[in-house]
């Protein structure tokens, strides 16, 4: 799982040396930013169901055709799966905030996503809309502190870029 610490340790191990001052400084920098990301992770975890619902609703209101017959949300089961997927992305973003890197999104969200969506004929634009809505809906200080919000939005943007 890619994070600052594992990257540093992998590099040190490849060179066969003990953690150097540079490595410790890199970890220190990561730790300094950790308070904000952990705050964002906590707030996101607390509001995950609500965030998911709002994002999914925004997506279906922008693309109402999705609920027509033959489309990705033609029946309730399929609609539920869309909300489940959004919750999945939110959970992975929560993990990224905890780790302080894009490892969880890369490994469990993005790798292979395009191929899966293409073969299931799912529109990625709908996911992008849901994530964009969440990004623009989140505000500070109502939801979290400015720095935490910044961390949160950067991971949402990362997911959006991967799906766009």
């Amino acid at each position: 799982m890619k994070s600052v610490v594992t990257t540093v340790v992998t590099a040190a191990d490849a060179a066969g040396r003990f953690p150097s001052q540079n490595d410790l400084e890199a970890v220190q920098g990561n730790i300094q930013r950790a308070t904000a990301r952990l705050e964002a992770a906590e707030k996101l975890a607390a509001g995950l169901d609500k965030v998911t619902k709002e994002a999914g609703d925004a997506c279906f209101s922008k693309y109402p055709y999705l609920k027509q017959a033959g489309e990705a949300g033609e029946n309730q089961t399929k609609v539920d799966k869309c909300y489940r997927d959004i919750a999945h992305y939110m959970r992975l973003i929560n993990y990224c905030l905890v780790v302080g890197g894009t490892g969880p999104l890369d490994e469990w969200g993005i790798a292979g996503a395009r191929e899966v969506y293409r073969s299931l004929r799912l529109p990625t634009a709908a996911y992008v809309e849901a994530l964009t809505f969440t990004r623009d809906r989140a505000c500070s200080p109502r939801d979290m502190s400015p720095q935490a919000l910044n961390e949160f939005k950067s991971y949402i943007d990362y997911a959006i870029n991967a799906l766009s």
Partner: peptide, 28 residues
Amino acid sequence: MLDAFSRAVVSADAKNAPIGGGELAALR
């Protein structure tokens, strides 16, 4: 390879749950 943070992520993923309260306290 895991660190304290990714260890929390891997065990939360096994439960399919986001990381909140209790686990975050240990990381804090």
